[in-house]
Design a binder for these strands. Structure first.
Lengths: 188, 188
DNA sequence: CCTACCGATCGGTAGG
DNA sequence: CCTACCGATCGGTAGG
């Protein structure tokens, strides 16, 4: 009757609103017009739902790293990465909320696997800004902290951005790109 | 034996690590070397703990608004606000984490009261940047979005900053102030 | 997919 | 502050 991706979508919605620990399997089942026990013919445990959601978002972020070409300038690389990052958050907002808020509830071995991907993603972000600084394109005293500052501003968008809101993802990205480049290019 | 603030401190620590719904009253009691039932001689309900923590952080943020003098320049006002904001997060990190992650679990009437304070704080932040834009001090096309961008970067610090880390709050604030002013003053 | 059920734990109260 | 206890609900299993 239901596919696993339907169950994950419903779980993403509920987990994002009520939290992982605040959502019971019976509530999830009810949203899908099932009984609680029936969920276990699709999954083996509640944590599997959390893992699949968090893992998917981590993969989408990391995939951006591979899509951005290395032969273009650090500035262009950064612009593409910022746009992609905001699109991932905006287009799968429920999953992104679960990713940012609930990943810490994964058991240690799964948590470790996510941290590896997050660190790789951040390192790539950092690398681009450092490369831009080396070329004299970005004038920034502390590239690592600048990368963290930028990523912070991007990540927080899940807190307020809504696709149904007045601002499109493209408009948001245009403005954020402008802020970020202005900050990086005019520093001392 | 225990004061209410000791109980709140322990709750802040546990709620920030395991989440509000992921922490049981018995676990909290255990951290305080008490039995679960004994907590109820200090508080009336679990939600009271969440409310007091969230409310205290909201008050500390809003208090910054009143401390910053109105007669100094928007730039100076912003610098003081940024410094104060980062200090609130850094100095009561556990409470700040609970504030940002768990406030949505308050019942509707309490949630509404927090939203009022948060909106007032954001509006003040916005006002300062808009005032700076009007004076030609900040060259920014969309002051409201610029304020959101800056607040995003500030808020996210709870995710990674630790007082025991290599960076002091003062150093962090110096760098963030530089990023923010650079961004706001050099835009077009 | 269902009904029926498991042991464990939940927030909270009674009474001292 | 404690012991003892409440009904409700938790994630998950058995068996069909």
């Amino acid at each position: 009757m239901h596919t696993k991706s339907e169950i994950l979508a419903a779980a993403g919605e509920l987990f994002s609103e009520r939290g992982y620990h605040g959502t019971s399997m019976r509530e999830l089942a009810k949203a899908l017009h099932m009984r609680g026990a029936s969920l276990y013919s699709h999954i083996s445990a509640k944590e599997e739902l959390l893992w699949e959601i968090v893992s998917e978002v981590a993969d989408h972020f990391l995939a951006l790293t591979e899509v951005v070409p290395r032969h273009i300038s650090p500035e262009e690389q950064l612009v593409q990465l910022v746009r992609g990052h905001l699109k991932v958050i905006a287009r799968e907002l429920h999953y992104a909320i679960v990713f940012f808020h609930e990943w810490k509830f994964l058991e240690p071995s799964l948590l470790a696997r996510i941290k590896v991907r997050r660190d790789a993603y951040e390192a790539n972000f950092c690398r681009i800004i450092e490369e831009g600084a080396r070329q004299g394109l970005f004038r920034v005293a502390n590239p690592r902290l600048a990368a963290l500052f930028v990523l912070s501003a991007l990540n927080w968008t899940y807190q307020w951005f809504r696709l149904e809101g007045p601002l499109s993802v493209e408009q948001l990205a245009d403005q954020y790109v402008a802020f970020i480049l202005c900050m990086l290019k005019n520093g001392k």
